[in-house]
Amino acid sequence: MAKARHQGIHRPPVLRWLAFQTGIVILIGLAFLFKSTVASYSAFLGGFIFVLPNAYFARKAFRHAGARSAKQIVSSFYQGEAGKLILCAVLFTMAFKWIQPLDVAALFLTFAIMLVTNWLTPLLASGGPQRS
Results as ranks from 00 to 15, higher is better:
residue 80 G to M: 00
residue 8 G to S: 12
residue 42 S to C: 10
residue 18 L to W: 11
residue 125 A to I: 03
residue 78 Y to D: 01
residue 56 Y to S: 04
residue 30 L to D: 12
residue 73 I to P: 03
residue 94 M to G: 02
residue 74 V to K: 13
residue 90 V to S: 03
residue 83 G to S: 02
residue 20 F to L: 02
residue 130 Q to S: 09
residue 84 K to V: 00
residue 128 G to K: 04
residue 123 L to W: 08
residue 93 T to C: 10
residue 62 F to L: 02
residue 12 P to I: 00
residue 104 V to H: 04
residue 62 F to D: 02
residue 22 T to H: 10
residue 100 Q to Y: 13
residue 40 S to K: 13
residue 17 W to K: 06
residue 39 A to P: 09
residue 89 A to C: 09
residue 111 F to Q: 01
residue 33 L to Y: 08
residue 50 F to H: 09
residue 4 A to L: 15
residue 68 R to N: 15
residue 75 S to T: 06
residue 125 A to S: 10
residue 116 V to M: 07
residue 13 P to A: 06
residue 93 T to F: 09
residue 101 P to L: 08
residue 72 Q to F: 11
residue 12 P to G: 00
residue 41 Y to S: 08
residue 118 N to R: 11
residue 91 L to V: 01
residue 65 A to L: 09
residue 73 I to F: 04
residue 61 A to W: 01
residue 126 S to L: 05
residue 116 V to D: 03
residue 80 G to P: 08
residue 65 A to H: 13
residue 93 T to L: 08
residue 35 K to I: 10
residue 99 I to W: 01
residue 121 T to H: 09
residue 110 T to D: 02
residue 99 I to C: 01
residue 70 A to P: 08
residue 131 R to M: 11
residue 114 M to W: 06
residue 88 C to H: 14
residue 59 R to E: 12
residue 95 A to P: 00
residue 64 H to F: 13
residue 72 Q to W: 07
residue 102 L to V: 07
residue 94 M to N: 02
residue 83 G to R: 00
residue 123 L to Q: 02
residue 98 W to G: 00
residue 28 I to F: 04
residue 109 L to Q: 15
residue 77 F to E: 02
residue 101 P to K: 12
residue 121 T to D: 08
residue 4 A to C: 15
residue 125 A to P: 04
residue 13 P to C: 01
residue 120 L to D: 07
residue 37 T to E: 14
residue 97 K to F: 07
residue 72 Q to L: 12
residue 29 G to N: 12
residue 2 A to G: 15
residue 15 L to M: 11
residue 63 R to W: 11
residue 36 S to L: 10
residue 3 K to R: 13
residue 62 F to C: 01
residue 117 T to V: 14
residue 29 G to D: 04
residue 59 R to C: 11
residue 59 R to Y: 15
residue 132 S to M: 14
residue 113 I to F: 10
residue 96 F to D: 01
residue 58 A to P: 11
residue 111 F to W: 07
residue 96 F to Y: 05
residue 18 L to T: 06
residue 108 F to N: 04
residue 31 A to S: 13
residue 114 M to S: 06
residue 122 P to N: 14
residue 94 M to L: 08
residue 130 Q to N: 13
residue 51 V to D: 03
residue 16 R to Y: 08
residue 53 P to I: 00
residue 114 M to H: 10
residue 37 T to G: 13
residue 39 A to W: 06
residue 114 M to C: 11
residue 118 N to K: 13
residue 19 A to P: 06
residue 46 G to H: 04
residue 96 F to V: 06
residue 7 Q to S: 14
residue 38 V to I: 15
residue 111 F to L: 07
residue 119 W to P: 09
residue 43 A to Y: 03
residue 114 M to Q: 07
residue 29 G to I: 07
residue 110 T to M: 03
residue 57 F to A: 01
residue 64 H to L: 01
residue 1 M to Q: 11
residue 33 L to G: 15
residue 31 A to G: 13
residue 83 G to P: 00
residue 28 I to H: 02
residue 23 G to M: 04
residue 47 G to T: 02
residue 59 R to A: 14
residue 110 T to H: 09
residue 36 S to G: 15
residue 113 I to C: 12
residue 93 T to V: 01
residue 32 F to A: 12
